[in-house]
Write a protein that binds this DNA or RNA. Sequence first.
DNA 1: TATGTTTTGTGATTTGTTTCACATTAACAA
DNA 2: TTGTTAATGTGAAACAAATCACAAAACATA
Lengths: 217, 217
Amino acid sequence: MKQITKHNIRNSLRRIFLYHGLLVRLNSMGVTRVFSYTLAEGTGVTPEQVRKDFSEYGIRGNRRGGYITASLLSEIEALFNRDWISNVILVGMGNLGQALSKYGQFIKRGINIVATFDVDPYKQKVRAENCVYPPGRLQEIIDRFSVKVAIIAVPDISAQDVCNELVSMGIRGIVNFSPVLLKVPVYVVVNNVNLCDEIESVILSVYRMKEEQSLFL
Amino acid sequence: MKQITKHNIRNSLRRIFLYHGLLVRLNSMGVTRVFSYTLAEGTGVTPEQVRKDFSEYGIRGNRRGGYITASLLSEIEALFNRDWISNVILVGMGNLGQALSKYGQFIKRGINIVATFDVDPYKQKVRAENCVYPPGRLQEIIDRFSVKVAIIAVPDISAQDVCNELVSMGIRGIVNFSPVLLKVPVYVVVNNVNLCDEIESVILSVYRMKEEQSLFL
DNA sequence: TATGTTTTGTGATTTGTTTCACATTAACAA
DNA sequence: TTGTTAATGTGAAACAAATCACAAAACATA
Ligand SMILES: NC(=O)c1ccc[n+]([C@@H]2O[C@H](COP(=O)([O-])OP(=O)(O)OC[C@H]3O[C@@H](n4cnc5c(N)ncnc54)[C@H](O)[C@@H]3O)[C@@H](O)[C@H]2O)c1
Ligand SMILES: NC(=O)c1ccc[n+]([C@@H]2O[C@H](COP(=O)([O-])OP(=O)(O)OC[C@H]3O[C@@H](n4cnc5c(N)ncnc54)[C@H](O)[C@@H]3O)[C@@H](O)[C@H]2O)c1
């Protein structure tokens, strides 16, 4: 079982996503050159870290002129080698699934949700423009669009079953929004996004800060 | 500026959230005792790591009997010291905001969304049961419920403005779903949850695995 | 009460990541 | 040309996290 969690995916790559997101925005604002400190400032890391990260993946700038935004962007995208694999499906069109499926900015980042699925026949006709398929058509769509990555937004009870089915149909990467640890074969990658944990961690940090401050009083 | 990101919050705490989530489920299933390997198995870390994490926060089990589920849970919750700070507000009732506000499981984790806000007058009456307030009433609600933590789910353009306003009204922790790095004073904690990055990281990992495999062919 | 077994708890070690310090380079100005 | 400056690039050092290895405790059983 290979789980990508905060620790399992190279930290440097995680940061390179951050740089990429920022670069997309800078580029669309007409910024043609960026420096390690530009990226550092905008992503909250140090300039040395930015350079070291690029260094690790053989991305190089100009010793005085920094980096050319457009070519840096395409170098990062080449690193990701995104095009052949960016078709994604979404299973579970409840609250969260619907929110994700309506989000228009994914395509700007090269993420193309080609189809969505739900067991509930009522959900299957929620939006005609963005057709929701029954799970029976999973294999057909996965094959037709060469889908390798799926987003799971079903209740925790169903998550493992859905996961097994997807893997047996050729899915090799899963973004899992349900709060369970999915069991998958070694050749499948899972990223668990636990929104409760994200919120709890802030609540806790606020508490910790309060505590630390009170040490000085 | 204090940003909590993947690197800035203690890793051990991040894992303790995982254990907590699992414990909540085990406890509701009637499991009364857990061992370091139970938690390890269910969260994808090693048993030694689990013990070391608890050790770091002074949580101790019985040298043969493992940990009592219920008391472990309350020890973790005591560590979080959650009660005085768990009221949360949500700003931005678009796709994502609505999904979050409808999620029924937050309260089980001690996260209580006391009110939601949106500038759009149409959104303000979407659901009568879960009233959506205009931003003009932020201060009143923040004070009334002693809210210290807010979730931002507004478009990236508005995110910094909303953030500034919230901080000036006493908010000390922010979960930010917009893809911008918020600038906040040192005493405010920010957790950026970037869903695009989460999906992209899986796409990339799948690609990497393919690449590694092909080395053996 | 002695003995074996299971599981925790933790110092020591290894492994991984970030920061530091500075050599290197490109651009520009005089 | 020849400094001077503003950047990058990277080995070394410092730091942080994870794993290992085993002592200590608790319990069961005879
Ligand atoms: N909504 C949130 O804000 C939020 C927050 C944290 C975690 N989550 C987690 O995300 C997941 C989805 O949350 P939600 O609020 O959208 O839940 P939901 O109950 O609103 O939606 C789940 C959807 O999955 C569908 N479904 C169930 N079994 C299925 C199957 N086998 N195949 C296909 N579809 C199936 C259901 O018909 C339903 O439409 C849950 O695991 C939840 O715990 C959600
Ligand atoms: N929906 C997704 O799946 C998704 C995925 C990745 C990132 N995001 C990010 O999350 C954020 C929200 O996404 P969304 O899809 O819900 O957007 P959305 O446009 O559907 O909703 C944004 C809401 O915020 C409200 N708003 C705008 N300015 C406001 C202000 N100053 N005060 C209060 N409310 C205000 C708008 O009226 C709208 O209802 C965006 O920043 C988006 O980039 C969303």
